[in-house]
């Protein structure tokens, strides 16, 4: 039985500590602390009168960012919608005339979103990002359903440099085969070189 006894860090009380003196001491100390704080300026700030700058990595309103060259980053790969635990993301992928895959429509239902950030983590193109903007309260629930035009922002967000199509190896109007990062020129299978 003794082995099963839950161990605690509590030390057994010494006789002096359990006396009335110690109780009084604790009481005085407690009141002293309270009194000290009564005189101090409060640390809380009144919202919305005061709006604190949140850390960059705070997880609130979701946006769709753009590549450094200003093009939409989202390739509608469906990873964010797959990972979303509340299924608040939906989209339809399609092909641009130049071969890029993009979201023809993209919808996030913020009425359902729990701001867990899994979508951002799953996004292979740094397109979907959570921003510190948490003030997304509406009376009409339907206005919380954001379409692509509501989600798309200018700029790269937290990832200022990544451009998926620089790496992807698929042909676009900007880069052909062999013109992406870390690519050799396309193989010419009919080359005379051995």
């Amino acid at each position: 039985m003794s082995e099963n006894k839950i161990k605690t860090d509590e030390k057994p009380l010494k006789p002096a500590e359990s006396s009335g003196w110690s109780a009084l001491k604790a009481l005085v100390e407690g009141f002293a602390t309270t009194a000290k704080h009564l005189a101090r300026k409060p640390v809380t700030e009144s919202y919305p009168e005061f709006k604190r700058q949140l850390p960059e990595r705070s997880r609130a309103r979701i946006v769709l960012t753009r590549d450094p060259d200003g093009r939409e980053r989202c390739v509608a790969c469906y990873l964010c919608s797959a990972v979303c635990p509340v299924s608040c993301i939906s989209m339809q992928s399609a092909e641009q005339p130049d071969g890029r895959r993009y979201a023809r429509w993209f919808r996030i239902n913020f009425g359902r979103c729990i701001y867990c950030g899994l979508c951002e983590e799953a996004c292979p193109t740094s397109a979907i990002q959570l921003t510190p903007d948490f003030e997304n309260i509406q009376r009409d629930i339907l206005t919380l359903v954001f379409e692509k035009k509501d989600l798309l922002v200018d700029g790269c967000g937290k990832d200022p440099s990544y451009n998926f199509y620089e790496h992807a190896g698929v042909t676009t109007d900007e880069r052909g085969k062999g013109e992406h990062a870390n690519e050799a020129p396309p193989v010419n299978v009919k080359s005379n070189l051995p």
């Binding site: 010419n188 009919k190 080359s191 005379n192 051995p194």
Partner: peptide, 16 residues
């Protein structure tokens, strides 16, 4: 034939 021609060293599929 291309399967063979593109395999060998001494078959030139491009002008020489």
């Amino acid at each position: 034939l291309d399967e063979l021609a593109t395999f060998y060293t001494f078959i030139y599929r491009e002008p020489v």
